[in-house]
Amino acid sequence: MIEQLPTAVLGLTVLFGLVAVAARDFLVSILSLSGASVALAVYFFLAGAPIAAVFEAVVAAGLITVLFLFVISLTEADTAERIERGKLTVVGLALGGLLGVGIAVWALLDPVASEAATGTTFAQALWSGRSVDLLAVTILMFVGVLAVVRLTAERLDPVTDTTATQPGDRASGQQEGES
């Protein structure tokens, strides 16, 4: 079964790719593309190219997904509205999940480790080489989700906060220290 995994992962890549092209929903497209990148990263790793796998996972699955979400949030009102109405949590979880699943699969299928306790060798390979990058990408994804929250929510549903400071108050400088 293990021998057929590269083929299965490649099949999954194609499947995700097809969904990304065929889906009418932008969100499904973006997340499918991200899934295809994660699957491709796993394949790279199985094929003995760990750095290419890291590039693919971080840049394609992580960064590119965030950028697509940014642009969709800024331009596509319908999709942005649906993100705003509660899909954002799903998007965040999906992004984290995709990355997590990718890393977990990667951990269990380390070809270098083969018969040895695979987790340990994976940990050495991944954490000693790219530990700070993984930390940074985690923050990048978190910041990306915060950004999408901002870019979708208030533009579509501006809240008139009557308790907020009125602009006119600022010019008067009341109740504020001055220099």
């Binding site: 590039f55 965030v66 923050i139 910041v143 870019l151």
Partner: peptide, 17 residues
Amino acid sequence: LFSLYVFFEVMAVATYA
């Protein structure tokens, strides 16, 4: 170089918002 790129992107993504 790759870490440099990753941190560059952390900075960039934050400023995109």
